[in-house]
Design a binder for these strands. Structure first.
Length: 783
DNA sequence: CTACAAACTTAGCACTACCCGG
DNA sequence: CCGGGTAGTGCTAAGTTTGTAG
C-alpha cells in the first residue's frame, strides 16, 4: 500500500461556487476517476488549471503581507536554465515522478560569522554545530532566567524556589490585583448562586472562601517546572488510574417506535437497530444528504444486519427512520426542558464519573486526565469530502483496550465480565489506555489534560525550540536562499518549500494514502494545480496565487509576491507537468525534516509555525503599544488575530451570525433614528432659547438635548466598532493559535507590563495549562 | 534506506453554561 | 425573568514527527 500521493489525477478546485467559508467542497465531478494515477498517467485536462485563475477571489482578506524578512533582500542572478541544473544522476531534469530522493548532499557549513539579533544564543548554536543526534532539548531552564532549579522532589514547598520574587506570583495569578470591582465578573467560574439578597457578611464570607480555595489550589499545584527532568525517554516513574470510562450500553427502542421499510414495520435486531438509530439521529445533519455518507452507512449497516434483514433491506431510500428520528428529537427537547433539580441530578452524576475516572496519580501527584471516556460508537464524521464518511465506528469493548500503568500500581479493573486486551507497564509513553479504531485503523489514546506535567513540559520544550530557532533563523534563511541556486533539483525544491513554510507558515504536508482521507495538502504535497503564477498582478511582480485545501479541508487562498528567484524556480518545477502532478516531486517531509534537523537540533517544519506565530505576536504587540486600558485588550486581540490569519485558522461563521449581525444593524438603525430625532429636538430647543433670551429652564433643556445627542452618537459608534470587530472575526478562529502557537510567556509578560489582568486573556483552563509560564514569567521576558 | 505504525500535537465543530440587555 | 448570543469545554478528526521492521 504505497502511501504515495502521487499524481492525483483529481482536480478539486472549482470555480466560484465557494461559500464564504470557503471550505471547498470538492466537486466530485468525475475527476477522481483515475485510480491509475501514477504520475505517469498524466493526461489530465489542464484546463482545470485555467479555471482556477478565473476564480473570484473574494475571500479572506488575508493581508498576510509578506513579512519583510531579510530574505527579500536577495535578488537574483538566477541564471537558471534547466540545462544547468540537471541532476547529475538522471540527467534530465524533467520533473520525474515522485523522485526517489537521492543523497542529499552535505551543506551545513555556515560560518559562525553569521550573527543575529540575539547573539547571546549564539553559543548555544555553536555547540550544536556538532550535529549530535540528541534532538532532545536539554534544559531550557537556564536559557532564560527562569528557574534553574533542580530541587528534585521538592514539590510542595514553593517557598524556597531559588528564583527571587517568585512568591509574588501567587496572588498575582490568583486574582486580578488591578481591578477591584471587576472581579466577580471574571470568575463566574466558581460563582455560586448569589442571591443578591445576601447579607454583606455572607458575601464577604463567600469571597473569602473563594480566595482560600484558590490559594489552596495554588498550594496543591505541582510545580514540576522546578524539578529536575527525568533521564532520556522516561516519562514517569509511577502511574495509577482507574482505566477508561465506557459509554452506556445501547438501550433498545421502546415498543411504540418503529422502523419502516417500504412502508412496513420492521422489527430490527438489536445490532441493526442501534446502527439505524445512529443514522436517524443525524437526519437533520447535512451528512445524510451526501451520497458517499449514505452509501458508506448503508454498506456498514447491512453488515450489522441478520441474514433476513439483509435480504429484505436493500435500498436505503425505502427506509423510513421517521419515528426513530422523532424520538430522538423528543429526547433532546425533553432534556432541554428539564427542571433545575433534574439537571442538577444529572450534573452530579457526571461529576461522580469525573471524580472516579477523571484523575490519575502520576509520580505522587493527582493529575487530570484529558479524555478518560472511550469514544462511543456512531457513524464516522470525516471532514470535507472524506471517502470514509458514514462508516460505522464500532463500539469499543474492554477486550479492545490496552491499559498502560505503573508497575506496582493498582491495575484498573475491567468492567464486570470483561478483560483488558493487554496490560502493560511502559513508562516511556504518556498514554494510559489505547485502542485501535476500526474506520481508519489508527490508534486512539487516553492521555492527560493539558494542565498536566506531561503535557506542560512538552509544551514548554516546544517553545524553547522555537526560541532557539529565533537565534539561528537568519543563518537558515541565508542557507535556503543559497539553495535556491543549487545545481541539484532536490535542494532547490527543498529551498522553495522551506521558503513557503517560513514565509507563509504552511504545514509540512505529509503524503497521504489516496482514498483513505479527504484530498488535502500541505507544503510538500502541493500539486501544480494548487498554485498559479503571475508575472505581474495587482501592482506586484512575481505573484503566486495559492488555492488548496489544507488540514481539516480548510481552504488556503492567498496571493503572495515572492522573490524572483523563487518565482523562477517555481516555473521550473511546473514545466512539463500536469495539474495533478506534485509541485515538489523530489521532496517529501522526511527529507525536509532531516535537512532541518541538521541545521539545528530539534528543528522540524512545524517549528517554523510556532516561531513565526510567536514572533509575530510579540512584534505586533510592540507595534500596537499604548492606548487607554479599554483598548489594550483590543490591541491584544488584533495581534492574536494577525497570527490567526498567518496560520490560516478559520472557522465557520456561527450559524446565528447573519441573524445576530442583522440584529445589531437594526439596533444601530434604531439609534440612528433616535439620533436624528434628538438632533431636531435640540435645534428646536435652541431656537426657543434664542426667542426667549435666557430662560434657565430652556437652557437646561438644551443641555439635556445635547447630552442625548451625544449619548446616541457614542452608542452608535460603539456598536459600529463592535460590528466591524465581529465582522472581522467572522471566519477567524483565535483559539487555536492562542492554545498551540503563542508562547504564553509573551502574553503573560505583556499583561504584567500593561497591567492587564491575566484573566482578561486566559480563562481558567488556559491559565491551568500555562501555569508553568504564569509562574516563571517576569516582565522582561522576550521570546 | 522505505514503509508503516506509534505517539503526540493541532484543529474545528457541537453543545452547553452562563451572561447581559430588554 | 427571558431569550439571544457567546465563551468555554468536550470531542474526536487530522495533522506531524519519531520509531521500527523488513
Amino acid at each position: 500500500m504505497g502511501r504515495r500521493k502521487d499524481g492525483k489525477a483529481k482536480t478539486k478546485l472549482q470555480g466560484q461556487a465557494l461559500t464564504p467559508r470557503q471550505r471547498m467542497v470538492g466537486d466530485e465531478k468525475e475527476g477522481s476517476s483515475g485510480d491509475a494515477r501514477k504520475k505517469s498517467t498524466k493526461r489530465k485536462e489542464r484546463t482545470k488549471h485555467k479555471e482556477k485563475s478565473e476564480r473570484a477571489e473574494k475571500d479572506v482578506k488575508k493581508a498576510k503581507a509578506v513579512k519583510s524578512k531579510s530574505v527579500e533582500s536577495f535578488d537574483d542572478d538566477v541564471r537558471v536554465h534547466s540545462a544547468v541544473l540537471d541532476e547529475p544522476e538522471d540527467g534530465n531534469f524533467v520533473p520525474n515522478k515522485r523522485g526517489k530522493k537521492r543523497k542529499r548532499q552535505e551543506e551545513p557549513i555556515e560560518g559562525p560569522s553569521t550573527f543575529k539579533m540575539n547573539n547571546l544564543k549564539e553559543e548555544d548554536e555553536a555547540s550544536s554545530g556538532a550535529k549530535e543526534k540528541s534532538r532532545k532539548m536539554k534544559k531550557p531552564k537556564e536559557e532564560e532566567g527562569a528557574c534553574p532549579v533542580t530541587t528534585k522532589k521538592s514539590k510542595e514547598e514553593k517557598g524556597e524556589c531559588p528564583v527571587t520574587t517568585k512568591k509574588k506570583s501567587k496572588e498575582e495569578k490568583g486574582e486580578c490585583p488591578v481591578t477591584t470591582k471587576k472581579k466577580s465578573k471574571e470568575e463566574k467560574g466558581e460563582c455560586p448562586v448569589t442571591t443578591k439578597k445576601k447579607s454583606k457578611e455572607e458575601i464577604a464570607a463567600g469571597k473569602a472562601l473563594k480566595i482560600k480555595k484558590k490559594e489552596e489550589e495554588e498550594q496543591q499545584r505541582w510545580r514540576w517546572w522546578e524539578e529536575a527532568k527525568y533521564e532520556d525517554g522516561v516519562k514517569w516513574k509511577f502511574l495509577e488510574h482507574k482505566g477508561p470510562h465506557f459509554p452506556p450500553e445501547y438501550q433498545p427502542l421502546p415498543d411504540n417506535v418503529h422502523f419502516y421499510y417500504n412502508g412496513n414495520i420492521v422489527k430490527l435486531s438489536l445490532a441493526a437497530e442501534e446502527v439505524a438509530l445512529f443514522y436517524a439521529q443525524m437526519l437533520d445533519h447535512e451528512y445524510t444528504t451526501k451520497e458517499v455518507f449514505r452509501n458508506n452507512f448503508f454498506k456498514d449497516w447491512r453488515k450489522e444486519m441478520t441474514l433476513e434483514e439483509r435480504m429484505l433491506i436493500t435500498d436505503l431510500s425505502k427506509c423510513d427512520f421517521g419515528e426513530l428520528h422523532a424520538m430522538h428529537v423528543e429526547k433532546v427537547e425533553a432534556r432541554k426542558a428539564m427542571n433545575k433539580e433534574d439537571k442538577l441530578v444529572i450534573k452530579e452524576a457526571n461529576q461522580r464519573i469525573v471524580d472516579e475516572y477523571g484523575f490519575c496519580m502520576l509520580d505522587n501527584h493527582r493529575e487530570r486526565i484529558g479524555n478518560f471516556k472511550i469514544e462511543p460508537p456512531g457513524l464516522f464524521r470525516g471532514r470535507g469530502e472524506h471517502p470514509k464518511q458514514g462508516y460505522l465506528k464500532k463500539r469499543i469493548q474492554p477486550e479492545d483496550v490496552i491499559i498502560n500503568c505503573g508497575k506496582g500500581s493498582r491495575v484498573p479493573e475491567p468492567p464486570a465480565g470483561h478483560r483488558w486486551k493487554e496490560v502493560r507497564y511502559d513508562n516511556t509513553v504518556t498514554w494510559l489506555a489505547s485502542w485501535t479504531e476500526n474506520v481508519q485503523g489508527s490508534c486512539k489514546y487516553i492521555m492527560l489534560n493539558p494542565s498536566s506535567k506531561l503535557k506542560g513540559e512538552k509544551d514548554w520544550e516546544k517553545y524553547e525550540v522555537a526560541r532557539r530557532l529565533k537565534s539561528c533563523v537568519d543563518r537558515i534563511r541565508l542557507q535556503y536562499q543559497q539553495d535556491l541556486k543549487s545545481k541539484q533539483m532536490v535542494n532547490r525544491q527543498r529551498a522553495v518549500a522551506l521558503y513557503f513554510i517560513d514565509v507563509l507558515a504552511l504545514r509540512a504536508g505529509n503524503e497521504k494514502e489516496e482514498g483513505e482521507t479527504a484530498d488535502t495538502v500541505g507544503c510538500c504535497s502541493l500539486r501544480v494545480e494548487h498554485i498559479t503564477l503571475y508575472d505581474r498582478l495587482e501592482g506586484s511582480d512575481c505573484v503566486v496565487e495559492f488555492d488548496f485545501l489544507g488540514k481539516d479541508c480548510i481552504r488556503y487562498y492567498n496571493k503572495v509576491p515572492v522573490t524572483k528567484r523563487v518565482f523562477k524556480n517555481l516555473k521550473l518545477f511546473m514545466e512539463n507537468k500536469e495539474p495533478g502532478d506534485d509541485l515538489f516531486d523530489r521532496l517529501n517531509t522526511g527529507l525536509l525534516n532531516k535537512h532541518l534537523s541538521s541545521l539545528m537540533p530539534g528543528l522540524t517544519a512545524k517549528v517554523f509555525r510556532t516561531y513565526n506565530a510567536s514572533i509575530t505576536l510579540q512584534d505586533v504587540l510592540v507595534s500596537l503599544l499604548p492606548g487607554p486600558s479599554a483598548e489594550k485588550l483590543l490591541s491584544y486581540n488584533r495581534a492574536n488575530r494577525a497570527v490567526a490569519v498567518l496560520c490560516n485558522h478559520q472557522r465557520a461563521p456561527p450559524k446565528t451570525f447573519d441573524q445576530s449581525m442583522a440584529n445589531l444593524q437594526s439596533k444601530i438603525e434604531v439609534r440612528r433614528e433616535q439620533l436624528t430625532l434628538a438632533k431636531s429636538e435640540l435645534t428646536l430647543a435652541k431656537k426657543e432659547v434664542k426667542g426667549h433670551c435666557s430662560d434657565s429652564k430652556l437652557l437646561a433643556l438644551v443641555e439635556r438635548k445635547k447630552k442625548a445627542v451625544q449619548r446616541c452618537e457614542e452608542q452608535i459608534m460603539k456598536m459600529e466598532v463592535q460590528a466591524t470587530d465581529r465582522e472581522e472575526n467572522k471566519q477567524i478562529a483565535l483559539g487555536t493559535s492562542k492554545l498551540n502557537y503563542l508562547d504564553p510567556r509573551i502574553s503573560i509578560a505583556w499583561c504584567k507590563n500593561m497591567e492587564v489582568p491575566l484573566e482578561k486573556i486566559y480563562n481558567k483552563s488556559q491559565r491551568d495549562k500555562f501555569a508553568w509560564a504564569v509562574d516563571m514569567t517576569q516582565t522582561d521576558f522576550i521570546f
